[in-house]
Nucleic acid binder design. Structure first.
Lengths: 340, 340
DNA sequence: GGATAAAATGCAATCGTTTGCAAATTTTTT
DNA sequence: AAAAAATTTGCAAACGATTGCATTTTATCC
């Protein structure tokens, strides 16, 4: 069927009896070329299964139409490869990027060299960078941003930075979850998560604010710093109960995975949910509603998040102004906090 | 700090006082170049944050060192963006590819044009293709394979095909789950999944075989064709119980997500697990052990799977012989089938 | 020290597209 | 019918790295 020798634009042009420049323009529907010529060449290309050599095109145009997406993992906690939320976001970014004519080069902070600007942009592997997660340190992000490459970060949008950050409204999320529990009578609500992340700190502020509005001051021992994994949550809750007894009646978690770990520990000790302890997750991963009891959680609109990130990145590519943006969060009330 | 003009190999060479050819060789540690020259140029490159232009390099060498990973989604069921197993595999592939010096271009069957060979390979966007999932039809895969591009598929390894397929031992998995339930006294075991996939058919054979060995013949009404989503499973179980009553005492599911949906339906109807119905999932996603009761499931070693896929792909890139390979599966017994 | 071998470096063509500009063709105008 | 304008097309120079081959430099040998 197909000819055995590699088909280049030059050969295609020869077949069509035109010059390569005409062929090139015809394929991108340049109105400079007469319409019938365009159509003829496009048809010929289709019938020969021709496609432009991307390497050559990129070299010539200095554009790759590729965006690097970096999962900014935290140390060695296996959060990322396991966390459905992050991977979901990757999926959404893939959609959003494709819709704008870009492809997605996947990487993560362990793999990529430390100098992202050089590795991805100056080497012409990609036109821009999307970072998922601020991590515990923004050193690499800052470094990349300083060299002026197009970059957008998913994280805490309130953080002041020389690059746009798209993120959920973490303060509001923390506030919503906490005040929901307090309004249902909880008196001692745990905040379960890692306080080193900017995002988590914001949520914690919301947690504090909710308490203040209820005329309460949260006990410092209720703020529990743990790794953002279900295993860590499971262990923490187990041990806390073992040593302190059940000294709390509500938990606000920084992710659904964390909530699930906590939930498991509580169930194993026959703690009633939500009767004894109400529990609120974060992210609304698909499993949240499948749990038993189903999990009350804070939903972040990942599709919107992905679209905003891509939009901000494209702004940078086009030298338009950019800004950090916030994705609204909503409280999804389910059985883990709701009595029948 | 950095010079403002783009640094090319030629300029770097000039700075070092050598020719571009020498610089090029030095950077790849070619022993043709005197050791001290090599080191000097490498140091210079590092200090100037130089990195080779990938587009130019790819054009010249005709190699991209990029592999396209295609999530071969099924119709419009949202299986993929939601299914943790598939995304986990993507993560593992990323690791495995990076370890071999390749990068990962993520795509899915909705996005990519239909002619994968042309779009990814002939256009020099990637050197090879990894497909996750055979889908309901292998048309696109066959088409790509026919044009001779390096390609490896995650699916049912027993399928005869002109390309290597890496997959779990689906027959064994189906057999293990079923006979586990039967050995614990189940008499009517449902098979919950989609029978149009080759993988699922193999598992169903294992299901049948397990019955045969126990001297049983499964009732055809126990083979339930549903979409591979938790929602579909939830609905199916709900409706079945509504119309038939509880006419089964075990369920073998084709994925953990399906199992979770079924579990939810059973719990809502206060069916005892495992006392009334035992349930077995597939994949051992991270949530399986967090469920309550924790979920008995069939584990597939995704890391090994990713490594095998990459190895087979590299074989093709190097014109070495390839073969389909099987990842062993193991039964992980948890509370959803185990009485205390 | 001169001839020969070995080691190190440089020349220049090449990969396949794109695009500014010039050239050729067609259409319009006078 | 010739000149001017508008429309189409083609020429040729980039883009930046790689590599076979030729050339220069250094080491070895008699």
């Amino acid at each position: 069927m197909a000819s055995d020798t590699k088909l280049t634009l030059a050969k295609l042009a020869e077949l069509a009896g035109v010059s390569t420049s005409t062929a090139s323009r015809a394929l991108k529907d340049n109105p400079l070329i007469k319409k019938e010529t365009r159509l003829k060449i496009q048809a010929l290309a289709k019938s020969h299964n021709f496609s432009i050599n991307a390497a050559a095109s990129r070299l010539r145009t200095q554009k790759t139409h590729v965006i690097a997406v970096i999962l900014n993992l935290i140390d060695n906690t296996e959060q990322s490869t396991t966390d459905p939320f992050l991977l979901k976001l990757v999926g959404e970014l893939n959609q959003a990027l494709n819709a704008k004519g870009y492809e997605l080069l996947l990487s993560n902070s362990f793999m990529a060299s430390d100098d992202w600007a050089n590795y991805f942009i100056h080497s012409q592997r990609a036109d821009g960078i999307l970072v998922i997660g601020q991590g515990k340190s923004t050193a690499k992000i800052d470094l990349a941003a300083k060299s002026g490459v197009p970059i957008v970060v998913w994280g805490d949008a309130k953080t002041q930075a020389p690059y746009p950050i798209v993120g959920g409204n973490n303060f509001q999320g923390g506030y919503q979850g906490t005040s929901h529990l307090l309004s249902r009578g909880a008196k001692r609500v745990l905040f379960l998560g890692d306080s080193e992340h900017a995002e988590m700190q914001e949520r914690h502020k919301g947690y504090t604010q909710a308490h203040a509005e209820a005329g309460l001051t949260p006990d410092p021992s209720c703020t529990c710093a743990i790794d953002i994994t279900s295993k860590a949550a499971y262990q923490y809750i187990n041990e806390r109960i073992k040593s302190n007894g059940l000294d709390f009646d509500g938990i606000v978690c920084v992710s659904d995975m964390v909530a699930l770990g906590a939930l498991k520990a509580l169930k194993e000790r026959y703690v009633g949910i939500p009767s004894d302890v109400g529990i609120v997750g974060y992210d609304d991963i698909s499993l949240a509603e499948l749990m038993h009891p189903s999990l009350t959680t804070i939903r972040q609109n990942t599709q919107q998040a992905a679209e905003l990130m891509v939009a901000q990145l494209i702004n940078q590519l086009e030298n338009k102004p950019t800004e950090s943006q916030v994705v609204e969060t909503s409280l999804i009330v389910r059985r883990s906090t709701k009595h029948d």
